[in-house]
Design a protein around this nucleic acid. Sequence first.
DNA 1: CCCTCGAAGATTGTGTGCAAACCTAGGGGC
DNA 2: GCCCCTAGGTTTGCACACAATCTTCGAGGG
Lengths: 229, 229
Amino acid sequence: MTRPLTSAERALGELRELILGGALLPGTRLGEVELAERLGVSRTPVREALSRLAAEGLVELVPNRGARVATWTVAELEGVFDLRVSLEPQLTAFAVPNATDVDLAELEELAHRMVEVGSPGPGQDLDALVPLNRAFHDRLVTLAGHPTLAAALAAAIHPPIVRRNFHTYDAESLRRSLAHHLEIVAALRAGDSGWARAVMTAHICNARAVMVRAATAVTTQDPSDEEAS
Amino acid sequence: MTRPLTSAERALGELRELILGGALLPGTRLGEVELAERLGVSRTPVREALSRLAAEGLVELVPNRGARVATWTVAELEGVFDLRVSLEPQLTAFAVPNATDVDLAELEELAHRMVEVGSPGPGQDLDALVPLNRAFHDRLVTLAGHPTLAAALAAAIHPPIVRRNFHTYDAESLRRSLAHHLEIVAALRAGDSGWARAVMTAHICNARAVMVRAATAVTTQDPSDEEAS
DNA sequence: CCCTCGAAGATTGTGTGCAAACCTAGGGGC
DNA sequence: GCCCCTAGGTTTGCACACAATCTTCGAGGG
């Protein structure tokens, strides 16, 4: 029973998808008329959408000079991981008492499928990991039943999510990451919130090491212009 | 050398001040034309300001039904304190290695003045505590040098900040709170991040106990209409 | 007496026009 | 040759007007 969305909401959703989906790279200029034509609406709802995306941190908005897709430095990326280390283990701990058998089975299913498509060999599909990983973490966050913490986490994670593919993982780190998911399920099953918290902390630190390494490599090797047509 | 602000920015700032200052109580309806006249601009910049305030969590925005000053339930208030417990002790720990003698002296000065104006007696002035307390915590957050964590904290704290007065503190809790500030300075001076983190955690838990008690008292005793002229 | 339906008023959503600010290219001065 | 300044085009900021939606209030039927 979904009420028909307003134009501004559609523009907001579409733009968010374009940015998060990688169709619009960081630094890309976002002209109002161009977006308006692309989305089939006037400039007004586009402006509203850009305002909101700016508040979300997905675009940078400079008065009289327009909008660009947000960029971030390596320091900011590390900052986001500090934040995740502060929040996600806590959320995981909150999830422990709430996990039903059904939840555990589905989380385990997700973790197993990630191992299947993530293990080296002919069936490896790193792109298929992204939605599975997202589903796993979302499920965990939902299970925590803590909207405020979840919102704070989502707000901070959104911007750099563009980079969230698994091609930057080396074999060792990837194996660790996949094992963490299974271990988190085990900790949930055991009802051990301390264990769950610890594994999640390790999981994020592992990801941080991978991402920071990849980011520094990119920014030091490839100082190319950040423009897209 | 401040570039002249746009109308939307002025509207944003003024509205934020009105809400945070308590001139507009939670639940107050925010008509676009009314605000436009009050601020001397047209509806367009007002709409943009409302959009941003909604993203900040200060106003609630329902399509086709307008904006109201954000309200929050006791559960949400507790959620905010969970978030503070996750972030502020960490920020305090980050501040430890960065604190210079000057910083320590100024923090101690603030803490002492809070004890002076906060102690029972003829000189007690609970309203004077608010800016001092804010200065103390801001100083600490700045010292941590971690914009991402600070932004996450600020975003979550903003909404319920309206309630941040010290009249709801009982004598015992107030004394604890003031002592915590001094103890945090001591921990910083000792360079003991674990100590600093622990005291900050206690500080926030103490505040949570006070606020939650006050909020439940209000909502259970006084189910009055949430309207303001 | 209560519920449902409908119309008038009020409020928000969106398109459009104009003024101001910004970016770029070209010419003149040092 | 380099820098500054100016003129043109482009883009954003804001106001206003109209369309769509919601709210309110009253009349009619059960």
